[in-house]
Amino acid sequence: MTTLTGIPAGPLIPMPDRNPAALRVAVARLSPEALPRFDTHWADAMNQARDEFSLLPGRHFVDHWWAWVAIQRWPERAARFRECEHIVATSDDKATRRAASAELGRILADSQANASRATGPGSTTRTPNTSSATSPSLTGGTSKTSLAASPKLSASAASAVPSTSRNPPPASRPTPKDRS
Rank of each mutant, 00 (worst) to 15 (best):
residue 8 P to W: 09
residue 8 P to S: 11
residue 9 A to N: 12
residue 9 A to D: 14
residue 10 G to L: 13
residue 11 P to R: 13
residue 11 P to I: 00
residue 11 P to N: 14
residue 13 I to W: 00
residue 13 I to C: 05
residue 15 M to E: 14
residue 16 P to M: 09
residue 17 D to M: 12
residue 18 R to G: 08
residue 18 R to D: 14
residue 19 N to S: 12
residue 20 P to G: 04
residue 21 A to L: 15
residue 24 R to E: 12
residue 26 A to N: 05
residue 27 V to D: 04
residue 28 A to D: 04
residue 28 A to L: 06
residue 28 A to E: 06
residue 29 R to C: 04
residue 29 R to H: 03
residue 29 R to V: 01
residue 30 L to E: 01
residue 30 L to R: 00
residue 30 L to S: 02
residue 32 P to I: 00
residue 33 E to T: 08
residue 34 A to L: 09
residue 34 A to C: 04
residue 36 P to K: 02
residue 36 P to A: 00
residue 37 R to D: 03
residue 38 F to E: 00
residue 38 F to C: 03
residue 40 T to W: 03
residue 44 D to T: 14
residue 44 D to F: 02
residue 44 D to A: 13
residue 46 M to I: 03
residue 46 M to F: 05
residue 46 M to C: 10
residue 47 N to F: 00
residue 48 Q to M: 09
residue 49 A to P: 07
residue 49 A to Y: 10
residue 50 R to K: 11
residue 50 R to Q: 12
residue 52 E to K: 09
residue 52 E to H: 03
residue 52 E to W: 04
residue 54 S to P: 07
residue 57 P to S: 08
residue 58 G to Y: 04
residue 58 G to E: 14
residue 59 R to E: 15
residue 60 H to A: 12
residue 60 H to E: 14
residue 61 F to Y: 06
residue 61 F to C: 04
residue 63 D to S: 09
residue 64 H to S: 09
residue 64 H to P: 02
residue 64 H to N: 10
residue 65 W to H: 07
residue 67 A to R: 03
residue 68 W to R: 02
residue 69 V to K: 03
residue 70 A to L: 04
residue 70 A to H: 05
residue 70 A to T: 03
residue 72 Q to S: 12
residue 72 Q to T: 05
residue 72 Q to K: 08
residue 73 R to K: 07
residue 74 W to M: 14
residue 74 W to D: 13
residue 77 R to Q: 10
residue 79 A to H: 10
residue 81 F to Y: 15
residue 81 F to W: 14
residue 82 R to M: 10
residue 85 E to V: 10
residue 86 H to V: 02
residue 87 I to R: 03
residue 88 V to R: 08
residue 89 A to V: 03
residue 89 A to T: 02
residue 93 D to Q: 11
residue 95 A to G: 08
residue 98 R to K: 14
residue 99 A to T: 13
residue 99 A to S: 13
residue 100 A to P: 07
residue 101 S to G: 15
residue 102 A to V: 07
residue 103 E to H: 10
residue 103 E to K: 12
residue 104 L to P: 05
residue 104 L to W: 01
residue 104 L to V: 06
residue 104 L to D: 01
residue 104 L to Y: 06
residue 104 L to S: 02
residue 105 G to T: 01
residue 106 R to G: 08
residue 106 R to Y: 06
residue 106 R to A: 09
residue 107 I to C: 01
residue 109 A to W: 05
residue 109 A to T: 11
residue 110 D to T: 06
residue 110 D to Q: 11
residue 110 D to H: 08
residue 111 S to V: 02
residue 111 S to K: 01
residue 113 A to K: 11
residue 115 A to W: 03
residue 115 A to V: 02
residue 115 A to F: 05
residue 115 A to T: 01
residue 116 S to T: 12
residue 117 R to W: 10
residue 118 A to E: 13
residue 119 T to K: 08
residue 119 T to I: 15
residue 119 T to F: 06
residue 123 S to Q: 05
residue 124 T to S: 14
residue 127 T to M: 13
residue 128 P to N: 07
residue 128 P to G: 09
residue 129 N to F: 04
residue 130 T to C: 07
residue 134 T to C: 10
residue 135 S to P: 00
residue 135 S to C: 09
residue 136 P to Q: 04
residue 137 S to C: 14
residue 138 L to W: 05
residue 139 T to H: 07
residue 140 G to M: 04
residue 140 G to P: 06
